[in-house]
Design a protein around this nucleic acid. Structure first.
Lengths: 224, 224
DNA sequence: CCAAAAGTGTTTAGACTACACCCATGG
DNA sequence: CCATGGGTGTAGTCTAAACACTTTTGG
């Protein structure tokens, strides 16, 4: 006998753009929760592993292709889905929102970014999933420089600072913050500057991934 | 159509006894991997949530009842189980090994504690699961005092110290360690002493759970 | 009285915090 | 020339790390 338990994956994908953290949601095309907003996701196929399933669903429903994706948690409570017993493996992703264009298709009427402070009502237990994802994001950013996944290849230092103040929801001393990041040597300063409207032009930095993975291997941690 | 993907749970339960960390394994009664050693676990029933499933399997296969149990990771690679597509939600547990007697029954020929440095060959991808669990254990113990879950209600301070040296696999300065633990005020010193053979008798301590949960709520972290 | 384990303080170095003014550009 | 955002240094405090001897018991 085959199991009646069904398996889905859901993705909580965060983006960051000039002072706002947003999450990728889709409008459902079908019942249950037709026309409701939900996390992108869907049933896992028999011949794909979990991460492939998430990537496929994300690409089908939103057009997104995500580099940073990790498993978040598996939700298996009874009654979390009106269609019966559905267990969902949730993933956590980070992306630069302007890295691709949103294009809904299968299962989704449309895909949109929502500021995490202005969320619509969500289908299923997705509010709970999102809450756990936000906690993970805030926790993680204090000990791993995943913030870089949310920024462009080249960015002024102030972008990084603003990202952290937004994510942690508190002020950061610019000098101390720079000292700490600099001491890690994970940033390369480029010979380039940008000026955004008025004000002194800012040097651009890029993230040195090689150095970061080396640090991680050595077990060195990062703490804001 | 019902899904052909089946869902199991597996438990990695750690115990600690006088300088040794051990993990609870069962000898399989049936194919596949008949007579092989594996993590306790099995199929999730339709009317139970994931944690109930783990507790039920643990109790059926080993007689254990675990207080500290958290979700570890979900393993869903293709081909991880010869019976077809099986996705497993792994849990991570801590227990005092002498808290109960091992009694195998359903699905298991016998249950036994194995020193994590002297493991037998394991069925399925359980070696990989166990590896991840050990990393979690080592990581976790440095920022949450979960070590207390592994000790008796009353214990001499040296037990705690030995647990940490074993778990982290390095020497700890006794004075600094005591200072740190003491500053957290999570230990109550009792008016009792034990002497174990020769040497000066040791005061007994107990873990103040109330204080610990309060600290956790306040977001205070612990770091060895 | 000797061996074994418990218990206890101080000093030093490094890390974290707080804090304010000058610089380069665009309008 | 002024408004805007970028960039920089230092002193004080706190925390972490290094380090060795005394105490109490059993044999």
């Amino acid at each position: 006998m085959k199991s009646k338990i069904k398996l889905t994956v859901d993705a909580v994908v965060f983006g960051y753009d000039s002072g706002n953290i947003s999450v990728l949601l889709v409008k459902r095309k079908y019942e249950p929760f037709k026309d409701g907003w939900a996390l992108p996701g869907g049933f896992v196929l028999e011949n794909e592993d979990l991460e492939q399933a998430v990537q496929r669903e994300l690409s089908e429903e939103t057009g997104a292709r995500i580099n940073y994706l990790e498993q978040l948690y598996t939700f298996g409570d009874l009654g979390r889905d009106p269609r019966g017993r559905v267990v969902s493996v949730a993933y956590f992703g980070l992306v630069k929102p302007n890295a691709f264009k949103l294009t809904a298709s299968t299962d989704a009427k449309k895909a949109e970014w929502f500021d995490i402070k202005k969320l619509p009502k969500l289908a299923f237990d997705h509010k709970k999933i999102l809450k756990i994802a936000i906690e993970r994001l805030q926790g993680k950013i204090t000990y791993e420089p995943i913030g870089f996944e949310l920024l462009d290849k080249k960015f002024p230092f102030s972008d990084l600072e603003k990202l952290y103040t937004t994510l942690l929801d508190r002020e950061i001393d610019r000098r101390n913050f720079k000292k700490k990041i600099t001491s890690l040597k994970v940033l390369d300063e480029l010979d380039e500057k940008v000026s955004i409207g008025r004000g002194r032009p800012a040097s651009l930095f890029s993230f040195n991934k090689k150095r970061y993975f080396q640090l991680k291997k050595e077990g060195i941690i990062f703490e804001i």
